[in-house]
């Protein structure tokens, strides 16, 4: 298998090298990719959408269909993870581990019984040291991570960033909670149902914005039709439409990242995480 793989890889590589000989040199301003449609995007984006970041305007406005179905793909991936891994059959472990919060003494408790006093907290059966510094620092950092993520989503029109990056960071903030405390704490904060609903809501916000344009008598995802609803001129309406769509993307991506992490790290049991 190794030899076959090497031969196939070398064959594919040599074909690509042969094809690369015809490419224009790196950084050529007159290469075919740079003269066909992108000059129009670069020159018209300010007067048509009022969004300085060309990447954002192309992503959410000129190529809105593309991004909508990418969001759907991400949603489908979350659902696929859930369907592959989630198990509802509860098989109780033989014994659970509890730690005394003040002294750090760990005790084993048989299945079906409760710890002797409420001062005990449940810990994972894998190696979990008593890490006060990590817990405290992560708890302090999470609000700032979320604030920065909201800034990234809202300021995507003027600087690098947007729904995808901000959504991933919002998801990462909850994943940090699940890693520094334990999975049960994070799931108590954001229930599985709420998470699944969030994924679907994100896709719905995106598609709903498009459908709203349709209802107001324009094409699907043509945000200039939103002008009478938002009380702005059509150009500004496109800018606001891009923002609405980015919020939808952010919500969907956040939900899917948390969903995949919860399922993979607990093998679908939602009991003991990383």
């Amino acid at each position: 298998m190794k030899v076959v793989g090497l031969i196939i890889a070398l064959l594919a590589g040599s074909l690509l090298v042969y094809a690369t000989a015809d490419f224009p040199p790196l950084g050529d301003p007159n290469s075919p990719a740079s003269v066909h449609v992108s000059p129009r995007y670069i020159e018209k984006t300010m007067e048509e959408t009022d969004v300085p970041n060309i990447v954002t305007s192309v992503l959410a406005d000129y190529r809105g269909y593309d991004t909508m179905f990418e969001t759907t793909v991400i949603f489908c991936a979350g659902v696929a993870c859930f369907l592959l891994l989630r198990v509802y059959r509860r098989e109780e472990p033989q014994e659970r581990l509890y730690r005394h919060v003040l002294t750090g003494v760990t005790i084993h408790v048989k299945a079906g019984k409760l710890p002797p006093s409420p001062d005990f907290e449940r810990i994972d059966s894998a190696w979990t040291p008593h890490d006060l510094i990590i817990k405290t620092i992560c708890r302090l950092l999470i609000p700032f991570i979320q604030l920065f993520a909201l800034y990234v989503i809202a300021h995507g029109h003027h600087s690098p960033g947007g729904g995808f990056q901000g959504g991933v960071m919002l998801g990462a903030s909850v994943i940090v909670l699940a890693m520094s405390q334990d999975l049960r704490t994070a799931v108590r904060r954001l229930r599985e149902k709420a998470d699944a609903l969030m994924c679907a809501t994100g896709v719905f916000i995106y598609a709903g914005t498009g459908a709203l344009c349709l209802l107001l008598g324009s094409n699907f995802l043509d945000y200039s039709a939103l002008a009478p609803v938002l009380h702005v001129d059509p150009i500004m309406a496109r800018s606001h439409g891009i923002f609405m769509v980015e919020v939808g993307v952010g919500v969907a991506v956040m939900g899917v990242m948390i969903w995949i992490y919860n399922n993979v790290s607990s093998m679908g049991k939602y009991d003991e995480g990383l």
């Binding site: 690098p160 995808f164 991933v168 790290s265």
Partner: peptide, 26 residues
């Protein structure tokens, strides 16, 4: 490609490493 770099920093270097570690841990 600043937008791509930002996405890669948050997605590739952040979340996908966490997914890998979670899968290897399990």
């Amino acid at each position: 490609a600043v937008d791509v770099a930002f996405t890669e920093a948050s997605v590739g270097a952040g979340v996908s490493t966490v997914f890998f570690v979670a899968a290897v841990f399990r």
